[in-house]
């Protein structure tokens, strides 16, 4: 490829990156109006482009290729998780009430991207019986408050659940690096080889 072709690609690609956001905002506008007249369509497109141009978001996850099938599976999983977690909490309310037992669990993550860590935290809060208390971005750890926790086995189980969710999310956006390699899980929570 020639240098000028390269440069044109450099100019065009960042613009292409905004297209999904513009389409989403446009769709939102049409949904909120609940009608599709010409004025609404054109006006919505103008507003969407205007918003994207005046508040540009930084590129997240360069080089990731989303996989629709995995995203669909992820969404189904999250929705069932939501129903399950509603039932779990409801059961805890009815059954234990004042004497509920919980714990704060440290979960080491393997993904290293703001977006993915945020997504993992978000979906973890939706999954049964866990609320994210703290996100340690630098050390890549989540601290999760889990509701029915009775023994050490429960804690390990919860940690594995969050890590499974992390893996699912990373694969869904085509971010294989880090979660595919079967190497030893980088962090047993209590080891002392953290950065100073």
């Amino acid at each position: 490829m020639t240098r000028s072709g390269n440069r044109r690609a450099d100019r065009v690609l960042p613009a292409l990156r905004h297209v999904p956001m513009i389409v989403w905002l446009w769709l939102l506008w049409i949904l909120l109006w609940g009608a599709t007249s010409a004025v609404i369509l054109v006006g919505g497109l103008l507003v969407a482009v205007g918003v994207v141009l005046s508040f540009p978001l930084p590129a997240v996850l360069p080089g990731a290729v989303p996989e629709p099938l995995r995203i669909g599976r992820l969404l189904i999983h999250v929705l069932t998780d939501l129903v399950k977690s509603g039932c779990t909490v409801a059961w805890q309310v009815v059954r234990h009430g004042r004497r509920v037992s919980c714990g704060i669990i440290e979960v080491p993550l393997r993904v290293d991207s703001d977006l993915l860590i945020a997504a993992v935290a978000e979906f973890t809060t939706m999954s049964p019986g866990s609320v994210v208390v703290e996100i340690d971005r630098r050390r890549k750890r989540l601290y999760v408050h889990a509701l029915p926790v009775r023994d050490r086995r429960d804690i390990a189980h919860r940690r594995a659940e969050v890590q499974a969710m992390e893996r699912r999310i990373a694969l869904a956006v085509g971010h294989r690096r880090g979660v595919e390699d079967p190497g030893p899980n980088p962090a047993r929570p209590d080891d002392a080889r953290d950065d100073p």
């Binding site: 939501l82 309310v93 208390v133």
Partner: peptide, 20 residues
């Protein structure tokens, strides 16, 4: 109302409520 501390009340507010 029933859960004993703020943190576990949050579970009720965040999940049962959202699902409802």
């Amino acid at each position: 109302v029933r859960f004993p501390d703020t943190m576990s009340r949050l579970h009720a507010a965040a999940k049962a409520q959202t699902l409802g």
